[in-house]
């Protein structure tokens, strides 16, 4: 009796997983179908007849890569500062970061827009890149993770050097590698997915990103959409495959208290 219940549960879990995977599978499937006949024509239509796709694709790559790299340069020191600096109001500042992290884009986008407008960065690539680099998510996750690392290595290192940069490179980064991978995956996937900012900050089609391309469904031939969606997923899937082991071990920020 108990055995059957267990087996049933396992089968249920497998079916559920299949159901969750179905959209990905179907997107790939649809990209190779034309009137229910298998074909490569959709890909030919996209790659050899839809040239808007290329600049848009490379824009997405550029934004996501640059934001991830600059983001890390901001996030790692900030997280280090949060876990090692002692100052009044640190707890309050950290809660401020958490709240900011939780703010929906529709709240932060207007302040972003106003900040960018005052700096004259509307309709420029920097306008997309700069605000995203300072997203508080990575700082919160990494600060939490740093609380669990071994501080004796850092203390030992301080005997030898006074340089914070050296300490971060040699004593901190090796210990938080997994967390860095998880944050990279998250930040990259998030920027790759960016829709609202390019939609509202950019007018030039040459600066746009793939989600904006995919949201203009009526502007392009129907056959190019599914191949574009597949090529759009592909880089994140590769990155996921590369870093997936780090996700659970790196994202232990569930308990913030």
């Amino acid at each position: 009796m108990v055995k059957i219940g267990k087996a049933g549960k396992n089968i249920f879990l497998v079916l559920l997983a299949a159901l969750f995977f179905l959209p990905v599978f179907m997107t790939v499937g649809m990209s190779f179908l034309d009137n229910n006949m298998p074909t490569f024509q959709n890909y030919a239509d996209l790659l050899f007849d839809c040239f808007v796709f290329y600049p848009v694709f490379w824009n997405s790559v550029l934004y996501a890569a640059v934001i991830t790299i600059i983001g890390l340069l901001v996030i790692i020191p900030a997280a280090f500062g949060f876990s090692h600096a002692k100052f009044k109001g640190k707890g309050a500042l950290f809660i401020f970061y958490i709240i900011l992290m939780m703010m929906p884009l529709q709240v932060t986008i207007l302040p972003n827009y106003i900040g960018l407008r005052d700096l004259g960065l509307i309709n420029t690539r920097l306008g997309i890149i700069l605000p995203a680099c300072f997203s508080p998510f990575g700082v919160v996750v990494m600060s939490r993770y740093m609380q669990s690392i071994n501080n004796s290595v850092i203390e030992a290192m301080r005997m030898e050097t006074n340089s914070v940069i050296k300490i971060i490179f040699h004593a901190v980064i090796p210990q938080i590698r997994i967390c860095i991978f998880a944050v990279v995956l998250f930040v990259f996937a998030d920027c790759w997915n960016m829709l609202e900012q390019p939609l509202l900050f950019l007018r030039d089609i040459n600066l746009q990103t793939l989600p904006v391309f995919l949201s203009n469904t009526e502007k392009y031939a129907g056959s190019v959409l599914f191949p574009a969606a597949v090529l759009f997923m592909f880089p994140v899937l590769l990155l996921y495959n590369f870093f997936s082991d780090s996700l659970e071990k790196g994202l232990t920020f569930g308990d913030l208290s």
Binding site: V14, A17, F21, V24, A189, L210, A229
Partner: peptide
């Protein structure tokens, strides 16, 4: 099977919305 549940997290919304 965890992958099947975690994967949607990184799948771009634009791709998912299409299907």
């Amino acid at each position: 099977l965890r992958t099947a549940f975690v994967l949607p997290l990184v799948i771009p919304t634009a791709s998912a919305a299409l299907i």
